[in-house]
Design a protein around this nucleic acid. Sequence first.
DNA 1: GTGTTTGCAAAGTGTTTGCAATTTA
DNA 2: TAAATTGCAAACACTTTGCAAACAC
Lengths: 143, 143
Amino acid sequence: MVFMERVRPFSQVLERLRSVGLRPTRQRMALAKLLFDGDDRHVTAEMLHSEAVKSRVRVSLATVYNTLHQFTDAGLLREVVVDIGRSYFDTNIKDHHHFFHEQTKQLEDIADDRIEIGALPPPPAGTEVSRVDVIVRVRENNN
Amino acid sequence: MVFMERVRPFSQVLERLRSVGLRPTRQRMALAKLLFDGDDRHVTAEMLHSEAVKSRVRVSLATVYNTLHQFTDAGLLREVVVDIGRSYFDTNIKDHHHFFHEQTKQLEDIADDRIEIGALPPPPAGTEVSRVDVIVRVRENNN
DNA sequence: GTGTTTGCAAAGTGTTTGCAATTTA
DNA sequence: TAAATTGCAAACACTTTGCAAACAC
C-alpha cells in the first residue's frame, strides 16, 4: 500500500489520458508516467526524450514534442517561456510563479501564495487577461 | 528649435554611443536613431532590420543582432523573453512590466508603479535576484 | 477495417559564428 | 596601420511538418 502511493498505479495514468480524450498509446503512457509520477517537474522536450531513451522507452523526439503539446492543450501541463529557443513544460498546473536560474537555466516553483500582486492594471481595451507570469531571475552570488 | 526636439540631434546619438564605449559606426548610428528617436519601443532583430532596409540603411541582419546585443550589454536596451524563439528588445530600461498580446505577439509596457509586488520570497540559497519580470498575457475577448 | 498515432527525415525559424574585407581612430 | 567592425554564408539549436507505416478501438 505504501508502495502504491509512491509509484502511481498504471490505471491512474491510463485514466488521466482517457479523461482528456487521448488514446493511451504506449508512448503516451510511458511519457505520462515519467512526467506525473513523483514530484512536480520542469522538463524540455529534449530532457524528456533522453530520459525516455534512458529508461528504455522507444519514442521519437517528434512524438515527445507532439505529446507535450497535446498534454498542454489538455490542461495536464503548462508551458513556461523564460529562455529564448527553449520551451519548458511544468507538471504543476496550479497558479504559481517561478525562479529562473540564469546560469544553470533551471526553473524552480514559487508557491503562488508567496507572491502578492496587488492592483494589476486593467488590460488593454478589447482584451482579457489569460495568465500572469512572474519570473524572478536569479544568479549565483559572490559569497 | 521645435524641430530639434522632435528629431534627436545627431550629436546626441553619437554621444550616447561614445559614452558606452562603442565606436559610432554608420550602422550603429543608424540603428540607434531608429531605436531611440521618438517613443519607447519593442523590437525584434528582424523588425529592426527590415525597418533599416526600408529607410535605405545598408546593414546586415547579423550586424543588427550584434548591435542589439552590444546595446543590451551596454545598458541601452533590455531584452525581454515572452515568446519562444523570438527575442524582444525594449528601449525602455526603467523598471517596468509588460502586457503580452498572445495573438498579435505585441508587447506593451506597464508602468512599474502600476504593479505592486509585495513579499517577494527569498531567492534560493547562494543566489541573488537579478530581475523580476511580470508578464500579463492577454488575449482578444469576445465582446 | 477505419481513423488515430507514430517515426523518420526534411524543412522551418530565429540566432550565432568564422573569417576575409572594410572601416574607424 | 592597428584594432574594431561588418557582411556573408555556413552552422546551429530547437521545433514543426508531411507522409507512409504501425497501432488502437
